[in-house]
């Protein structure tokens, strides 16, 4: 019997050595995350004109927005993946493609600044505008922030507050805003 046990021991150790030596020392491949949104871009156009200004929010730099008082604007939002500068991806296309699952919402602390969805806005299958394109109007001079949200799978798309929509927040960024009287 001893020989049998010895044989077993031998087989085990061979198997063990065999698998232990099956090393390949290749390096793992790098992962550059693709679905990351690195940049939120607001294109602000004064209504009835072609005067556009572009404001970017990235982890490293945040542009401040300046608006004129008592003026109407159109704001278009874009979500970009610029993690590979040679291959910038526009995630907004995906958001529009999956419009039923997405909703853009803004909150502002700027006194008198309000927004509604624009006539050229993307409309989902329930005929609800998802705020990719919005019309804004300012009143008097003031300062504050505009907080932009991209909400994924909101429980509802009607409401006045972020809390009303539920869902997961994919984007939440602040832009500093100054509304100034025209000189």
């Amino acid at each position: 019997m001893k020989t049998m046990i010895n044989k077993l021991a031998f087989i085990f150790s061979i198997a063990f050595i065999f698998v232990s030596c099956g090393d390949d020392d290749e390096n793992p491949i790098v992962i550059n995350e693709e679905e990351t949104i690195t940049t939120v871009k607001l294109t602000v156009t004064e209504s009835g004109t072609t005067n556009s200004q572009v404001y970017d929010w990235t982890t490293d730099s945040k542009d401040d927005i300046t608006l004129a008082s008592n003026t109407s604007y159109n704001i278009k939002i874009q979500f970009l993946d610029e993690s590979d500068p040679s291959n910038v991806e526009d995630i907004t296309e995906e958001v529009i493609l999956e419009k039923d699952e997405h909703f853009v919402f803004y909150q502002t602390t700027v006194n008198g600044l309000t927004f509604t969805s624009a006539s050229d806005d993307t409309v989902d299958s329930g005929n609800i505008s998802i705020n990719i394109s919005t019309d804004w109007s300012s009143t008097g001079a003031a300062t504050g922030v505009i907080r932009a949200f991209l909400i994924h799978e909101p429980t509802t798309k009607t409401g006045n507050d972020r809390d009303d929509f539920g869902g997961e927040t994919d984007i939440e960024v602040d832009f500093n805003v100054s509304v100034v009287d025209p000189v």
């Binding site: 994924h152 539920g166 927040t169």
Partner: peptide, 20 residues
């Protein structure tokens, strides 16, 4: 329980029932 950020967490904590 799948949440996007702290705001979502606060909403979940403040609600007596699950959001979905």
């Amino acid at each position: 329980s799948h949440i996007g950020n702290v705001g979502d967490l606060v909403r979940a904590i403040n609600n007596d029932t699950p959001l979905v």
